[in-house]
Design a protein around this nucleic acid. Sequence first.
DNA 1: TCAAAAGTGTTGAACATACACCCATGA
DNA 2: TCATGGGTGTATGTTCAACACTTTTGA
Lengths: 239, 239
Amino acid sequence: MPTDGPSTLELAVSSVVFALRPHPETGELTLWLPLVRRIREPFEGRWALPGGPLDPQQDLVESARTTLHRTTGLTPRHLEQLYAFGDADRSPGAQDESPTRVVSIVYWALVRQDEDAEAVDGENVEWFPADDIAEEAGPLAFDHGVILAYALRRLRAKVIYSPIAHAFLPERFPLAQLRQVYEAILNRALDPSNFRRQILAQGTVEDTGERMTGTAHRPPKLYRSSPDRSRYTLTIQEN
Amino acid sequence: MPTDGPSTLELAVSSVVFALRPHPETGELTLWLPLVRRIREPFEGRWALPGGPLDPQQDLVESARTTLHRTTGLTPRHLEQLYAFGDADRSPGAQDESPTRVVSIVYWALVRQDEDAEAVDGENVEWFPADDIAEEAGPLAFDHGVILAYALRRLRAKVIYSPIAHAFLPERFPLAQLRQVYEAILNRALDPSNFRRQILAQGTVEDTGERMTGTAHRPPKLYRSSPDRSRYTLTIQEN
DNA sequence: TCAAAAGTGTTGAACATACACCCATGA
DNA sequence: TCATGGGTGTATGTTCAACACTTTTGA
């Protein structure tokens, strides 16, 4: 136990942003996320989650939104609180240089495929395939590696009992696309016919009556995700 | 939107503490929780969740633990982060008197039946049946009513996919007691024989080989909860 | 031997998995 | 017409709720 600890306290808001893009090698749909290169100590040169100090005037979720827009150009609709990280001795590597205690409230964002087009790569912002972070980006700054691992675990757990996968898709979509989202997140193939039945049975999508045109073959029906009965979501309305 | 907002920022840690005790009227096992009466503005006289400002030297969970011990005399083993509440205009009733922006990180605690004996009622601390808070305690201070409702919802949701119910029981216990815990949380009766099979099938308990003695009738086997395979828990190890 | 709770067995219904098969379109 | 993915039907196995039934104890 340290004899002397930090005496000042700072509150930061960071985000883990997930988008689905084809993998550079295999071509299969995979999870990507943007990281920001630190341009000062501590951890100068390392990659970190996008984030920043909390403006006392701003709601937590607003803070996440603005930082995200500033760094990536994105304004994801799906933004959800993940966890608050605040051990007194976080980011051990930085202890000497920064005696400041930082509590980070971490959000995760899911980017819709049609929103993803607005993504702009900033000077020190780069996107990485989520499962290749260690090789491609090296060890992350602070405890962000732990945070990322947790976010991935949560995403994969939550996708099977909650309709969050829909958050990756535009307004209207064929079921095959929804299935691809599930397959990308879970990293395994799903039987198309059984998938269809399960999704329709749980009532989280509804038929729009329209069909997709210009497909290579038989045109699939288009669905939209049903308004949430909030049977599943545990997101919080504070007021 | 207010033209002028708070300019200072404070970080507090609060807890929702659940224990199981017989209901004063029906005698059935129900959820109880301790509240603290506020002795100064804002919200003087109202009941609030136990909590306090974060000491910069202390881990978040430690802070929850110490406050809890100070107010209730308890040291619950099960302590888990619930959510961070931090909208800029929380606790609207207090806006005039306190221009300070407070972000609260809320933990929930589950008290084991054998730990509950150590509970000490302080001067301004009182326990209430969770579902009767509105009638018995009136509207809570700040947004604590919302927080409590969320905690209850989460507890009831989580009990069905995670073995948290075990956290209410001592080291060794008969299955009937575990069933009573589930029944108390979910507020409905469960079939004893099917309950037994389900619990044994999920492998979250193991037979101790011992039996309870001195029961009115046939002595039940005693079980203990198996060490967590952490297939279920999403609690975080920060290091 | 009786009451009461522990614990086992059985049945029918609901659901999931695997996979055969038909449908609709562009080329 | 063929190839391809969309979409439906069906057989088999598994899980689950309901409840009859047996077991074991204290009184």
